[in-house]
Structure formats: C-alpha cells, structure tokens
C-alpha cells in the first residue's frame, strides 16, 4: 500500500446551516484512479469543491501529501499540485484556447516546461490544436471539456480532480474523454473523478466510493462494486 496522497477525515460542508456533506472519510493513494459516484444532490460536487479550496472547511478534514490543507484558498493549492476540472467545465469563454491553456500554467515559472506541456496537451487533443486561436466559448461541449482537462494538466498536478467530465456529451465523446483520463492516470497523475455514469467510472477506475445524502455508504475495489447488488440496482440500472 503506497502513501495516501489525499485523505479526507470527517469532512463536513455546510451551506448556511444546511449540511451537504456530513462527515465523510475518503483516501486516494499515490497513483490510484478513484471514482466517487452517487445520485443528484448527494454532495459530490460539494466534496470536490471543499478539497480544491472553494468552500470553507475544517483545517484537518483535508490532508494533501500529508499536510492539512482544509480551508486554504484554491490558488495556493494549485501550486501544491492539486487541480480541479469543475462541473460544467468553466472554460473562460471570452479567452482563446491558447489563453485558456496559458491560464492553466499560471502558477508555473518554468517557461520551457510550460511550452513543452502546452504542445503535449495540443497533441493529446488534436481538435484543440486545430482551434487554438478560437474563443473557448465557441467550442463544442466536448471540445470545451477537453480544453478544461488540458488546462488543468498544464498546472502539472499530482492530483487531478474531475467533476462529471461526461456531463451533456455524446457517448462517443464520453468514451474518448475517459480514454484520455485513463491515459493521464497511466502517466502517473493520481485521479479522483466524480461521475454520474457509474458503469463507465467503475470500469475505468481501481477504486470506488458511493455517496448518498452527504454520506459515504459503500466503498472498495471498483470491480467488486460493479458486482455489488445494491450498486447494480441503484446506479447501473439493472
């Protein structure tokens, strides 16, 4: 068992008195690919936002590479190697593809490394290469998702958080996106992905967590979860 890169301990998230995440424990080891699945409103996005520094949480409830980071601002966590691809992609629609990618590398100073990674991302997503001067707002949904992922990669993350990368995309595009996420994981980036498409997520990942109304109800080996009766009924439509 390798060391935990991300560790949530009794993580709670509240929106003005209403608790959306009610004390969850979750561990992602270095090099793992983990998914978090659950119904609408279960609190998955809230958990990811809390990890990424977008919501106020207790300091010790989030540990990254051994350090407590709960409540640290997002911009600081990026420098430590944590990147979030937010729900709905969040590309800067009035910036070009290249400018969006440049913002992904904002916290880096190694110009040569950034240029090389920029080229690598464009090679990973040839459709972005063809459109590199186009405004991001004019890209298709799938292209925007690729841009959001590529942009996150440019910060050279150790841990990549993805919030519903399949949202609103055609099945063929979703398959391609998950192929790429698998590719990224094989290159050594640790991945935690929130996903509605439970089957695809569990088939791609090594480990899975199931979240219901703010709590983790099940977790374990992804293959085991695929065979679990409760999961099959609730999330795989069988």
């Amino acid at each position: 068992m390798t060391a935990a890169l991300l560790e949530l301990q009794r993580l709670e998230v509240s929106y003005g008195g209403i608790r959306a995440v009610k004390g969850i424990d979750l561990t992602v080891a270095d090099g793992e690919m983990v998914c978090l699945i659950g119904a609408n409103g279960a609190g998955k996005t809230s958990a990811l936002k809390a990890i990424a520094g977008l919501l106020p949480v207790a300091r010790d409830s989030v540990r990254f590479a051994g350090e407590p980071i709960g409540g640290r601002p997002a911009f600081e966590l990026v420098r430590r190697g944590l990147a979030l691809v937010p729900e709905g992609r969040g590309v800067f629609s009035q910036l070009s593809v290249d400018e969006n990618l440049a913002m992904g590398a904002y916290s880096r100073r190694d110009r040569a490394g950034v240029r090389a990674d920029h080229e690598r991302v464009l090679a990973l997503f040839p459709r972005l290469k063809e459109r590199h001067r186009q405004l991001a707002g004019t890209l298709s949904g799938g292209e925007q998702q690729m841009l959001a992922i590529g942009r996150a990669l440019l910060s050279k993350p150790r841990l990549l958080l993805l919030d519903e990368p399949s949202m609103g995309l055609a099945p063929r595009v979703v398959a391609r996106i998950f192929e790429v996420i698998g590719e990224i994981a094989r290159q050594g980036v640790t991945v935690l992905v929130v996903e509605q498409n439970a089957r695809l997520a569990l088939e791609t990942c090594n480990k899975g967590y199931v979240m219901e109304s703010g709590l983790i109800t099940l977790f374990g080996d992804a293959r085991a979860l695929l065979g679990n009766d409760a999961v099959r009924k609730a999330y795989l439509g069988e």
């Binding site: 990424a52 520094g53 977008l54 601002p73 997002a74 911009f75 990026v78 420098r79 990147a83 979030l84 937010p86 969040g90 800067f92 629609s93 009035q94 910036l95 400018e99 440049a102 913002m103 992904g104 904002y106 916290s107 942009r151 910060s155």
Partner: peptide
Amino acid sequence: RLGIAMRATSQNPLVAGLMGID
C-alpha cells in the same frame, strides 16, 4: 500574463482561483 489573468478573473473569479490566480 497579468492581462490575461485580469480578463480571466473578470469572466469567472472562482475558476480563476482554480488556475492558481490570486
């Protein structure tokens, strides 16, 4: 870089934070 960061922040400050922009 600063100029692009200004425009990014004006479009979406939350996502700008996720880019490492203070």
